[in-house]
């Protein structure tokens, strides 16, 4: 089984510190990493090797927890424990910090751009999720502060093609938000995980959501619209989300991240047991009660916890991961027939 996942290269990205998170730009030519050394690094491929193209070190006073590219690829947002989010503008090969978003009371844990590029979401240990609007002059205005969670909010991710936002929290739940009459409202709460939900990923259609948790499981949730043929009850006009599959027994420690390939449908997880695992949906399983099989398990993918895994947006099977050991690894996954 291990042959299906091959190591391509390893980069010492944030030595003597953690590498917390990675993000591919939309075309997949650049990979941004961030870490406990307060820097953001931009990696690009020259020939067969990945090299560090830029180091963004002037923006933050504390750990940079996550980074996100705008859908156009010209902006990078960085969320930091210093309670701010920086917006970096790409100018040829260099990056310039053009705006600092302030307002959260303490550590910003995540940042995400809506598919239109006009909205940005941030979340924090202060239990809130903020939605920001971006205008043509690169001005950012907070349009909503969402206080639905009762604890530290770990992650925010936008739906792939709608203005629907999802957040994951230390309160063990996932919440979804949409705009309603100029304000944002929480339209669904997904309950089921038994501990902190660390991350989440939509599939290509956006009708399914994968979540991963400190409870060592991954859950797959499916959206049911009002009047659906399966008889799932909806309140009002909002769709209901139901857990249709739980992947348990595969991970031995906290699952920190999950990525769902929009090219192949493969799911990959980052785990505190140092391993990377890949799951495929069984072809003949019922879509309403799907089953997934473990198709790759790289036991010591890194020498410490794996914090992030992310599929390349254009090249099927290309995968990047990073770890508490400060390293980035690039992998090629080959689906077995």
């Amino acid at each position: 089984m291990k042959d299906s996942l091959t190591l391509l290269s390893r980069l010492s990205a944030h030595p003597d510190s953690r590498c917390w998170f990675l993000a591919w730009n939309p075309t997949g030519t650049l990979l941004a990493s961030c870490g406990g050394d307060r820097t953001i690094k931009i990696w690009g491929k020259e020939g067969d090797t990945w090299i560090c193209k830029s180091v963004l070190s002037e923006g933050h006073q504390r750990t940079v927890r996550k980074v996100a590219w705008s859908p156009c690829g010209n902006y990078l947002a960085s969320a930091s424990f210093d309670a701010t989010t920086c917006i970096w503008k790409k100018k040829q090969t260099q990056f310039e910090c053009v705006t600092t978003l302030e307002g959260h009371e303490n550590e910003v844990k995540s940042v995400s751009w809506a598919p239109s590029g006009n909205l940005l979401a941030t979340c924090s240990r202060d239990k809130s999720v903020w939605v920001w609007e971006v205008d043509e002059e690169d001005e950012y205005e907070c349009v909503s502060v969402l206080n639905s969670h009762t604890q530290d909010v770990k992650n925010v991710v936008w739906h792939p093609n709608q203005e629907l936002l999802a957040s994951a929290s230390y309160d063990d739940t996932v919440k979804l938000y949409r705009e309603e009459e100029d304000d944002w409202v929480c339209c669904a709460t997904l309950e089921g995980h038994e501990s902190t939900v660390w991350s989440l990923a939509f599939d290509k259609s956006g009708e399914r959501l994968a979540t991963c948790s400190d409870d060592k499981t991954v859950r797959i949730w499916c959206q049911y619209k009002p009047g659906n043929e399966h008889g799932v009850v909806c309140s009002g006009s909002d769709p209901s989300w139901k857990c249709i599959c739980t992947l348990s027994g595969f991970h031995t420690r906290t699952v920190y991240d999950v990525s769902w390939s929009h090219l192949t449908g493969s799911l990959v997880t980052a785990c505190g047991d140092d391993a990377i695992r890949i799951f495929e949906e069984d072809a003949c399983s019922d879509p309403q009660q799907p089953s997934f099989s473990l198709t790759a398990h790289m036991a010591r993918a890194h020498s410490q916890d794996v914090n992030c895994v992310v599929w390349h947006p254009k090249e099927a099977g290309l995968l990047a991961s990073c770890s508490d050991d400060g390293e980035i690894a690039l992998w090629q996954y080959q689906k077995l027939e």
Partner: peptide, 15 residues
């Protein structure tokens, strides 16, 4: 126990 097991909150606390 939950707070001690959360390495992100431990990392933030130690900053």
């Amino acid at each position: 126990n939950k707070q001690l097991a959360d390495k992100e909150r431990v990392a933030a606390a130690l900053e």
